[in-house]
Amino acid sequence: MSRSAPATSSDGRLSCGKAARFFCTPPPPRYRKPVVLRLAHQLSVTRSSMFSHYLPAAGRLLFPCLSLLLLAAPASAQKRLRYRDWQLVWLEDFDTYRDVADMQVRSPWKFTPDTYRTLIGNAREDEYYDQRALELHEGNLHLVARPLPEPLAYRYSVAGRDTVKILHFESGWLSLKPALQPRRDWGDTARWPGNRGVQYGLFEIRCRLGGGAGTWPAFWLYSGPTEIDVLESISSRSFSNNVHWNPSNGPARSRQAEFQARGGADLTADFHTYAVSWTAAAVTFYLDGRRLRTVPATELPTFPAPADIIVNQAVVAGAPFNTWPGLPGQRQSALIVDYIKVYKPRTAR
């Protein structure tokens, strides 16, 4: 039986038809490397092609990442308050006064608000501010909140209308005397009669909160339409800061945020520093030298005028009078102030 001749394709190569596939003589086998060598060669080719393909892409990704890290380093460093950029221009450490009476005579502070003995515009407050609620101990000023012996019917008049507000607590207040006029050598300018305080700068307080149900300690700056609350707290483990803008020709606006100490520390257990950097461009808040947040002027403006510096210990209306402040063996709560400092930018001096 003769074998069928192998068919030839159009390109001259041998082609085995379906019926003759078992009869086609296969081409001589080519030399094949051992399996181990073939795998090693394939791996080397794959690795080299992979590196040649991915290394440029990895480089393209790596360099932007390195650039971001380099750019992020200064931003991370700026989270710490850079005291070397500021010049201390004013310090109140309460170390030079014999007692509160001496402080009343020689210090720049007054111990009650300008017109009334309570903030009449805030229905949430239930305290009567009095010099008796201020005490000096070991160079620290104590603003002491405590229940009054009996409720006080505080009478006042607004726009010719007589009003009575029932108050249940007395407490301490600290603000600047009208005699403390703006310092032009600091770059401050007065904008209306009686305007006092400091315009722009770094304002810092070191204090320990007293705690207790209903206590409302605060450190703030006030200048007409602008109020900057550096510290407000109604809890022993958190506090808030705020920027208020109350223009006469527009709606009131504010930006508030709440924070905790690192690790959720008890703010009544130790002293902490609360600070604000106030410039024409922004308001930046700090706790213990670490930046908390920045409110740019493009988001919420501030009025360019000297601001009064105020420290007070309010008590929220409705606080449990009979058991207040709810601390074991105590019938009072003291906001203890170590110092208050004001800085100006070094470049401005």
Rank of each mutant, 00 (worst) to 15 (best):
S4I: 07
S4L: 11
A7I: 05
T8E: 08
S10N: 07
L14E: 14
S15P: 00
K18W: 14
A19K: 15
T25H: 11
P27D: 12
K33F: 13
L39T: 12
A40Q: 12
H41Q: 14
R47K: 11
R47V: 15
R47S: 12
M50I: 11
S52Q: 12
H53P: 00
Y54Q: 12
A57Q: 14
A57L: 15
A58G: 08
L62K: 06
P64E: 03
L66N: 12
L69W: 06
L69P: 06
A72L: 13
A73L: 13
A73N: 09
A77Q: 11
K79L: 10
Y83H: 10
Y83I: 04
R84D: 13
D85N: 15
Q87H: 14
E92N: 06
V100P: 05
Q104T: 04
Q104C: 02
K110G: 04
K110N: 03
K110C: 03
R124N: 14
E127G: 00
Y128Q: 05
D130G: 01
R132N: 11
A133K: 05
A133T: 04
L134V: 02
L136I: 08
E138S: 10
L141K: 07
H142Q: 12
L143K: 03
L143F: 02
V144G: 01
A145K: 00
P147K: 10
P151H: 09
S157K: 14
R161L: 10
D162F: 01
T163G: 04
E170K: 12
E170V: 08
S171Y: 01
G172E: 01
L180D: 00
L180Y: 00
R183G: 05
R184N: 07
R184V: 08
D185E: 15
D185L: 05
T189I: 09
R191G: 10
R196N: 13
R196S: 08
Q199L: 09
Y200W: 08
F203R: 02
I205R: 01
L209E: 05
G210N: 02
A213G: 07
G214F: 05
F219E: 11
Y222N: 11
S223W: 02
G224P: 00
P225S: 13
P225N: 09
T226M: 12
D229M: 04
E232A: 09
S235A: 13
S236D: 15
R237W: 09
R237K: 07
R237L: 09
S238P: 01
F239Q: 01
N241V: 06
V243P: 03
W245G: 03
N246V: 13
N246M: 13
N246T: 13
S248Y: 07
S254G: 00
R255G: 07
R255K: 14
A257S: 15
F259V: 09
G263F: 07
L267M: 15
L267T: 02
T268L: 11
F271D: 02
H272T: 01
H272N: 08
T273D: 10
A275I: 01
W278I: 09
A281M: 04
V283W: 02
V283I: 06
V283L: 01
F285N: 06
F285V: 03
Y286I: 03
L287Q: 06
R291L: 13
L292M: 13
A297H: 14
A297C: 07
L300F: 03
P304A: 08
D308H: 00
I309T: 10
I310C: 03
V311K: 01
Q313K: 00
A317T: 08
P320L: 04
N322W: 07
P325D: 04
L327D: 08
R331Q: 14
Q332A: 14
V337S: 06
V342F: 13
V342I: 15
T347F: 14
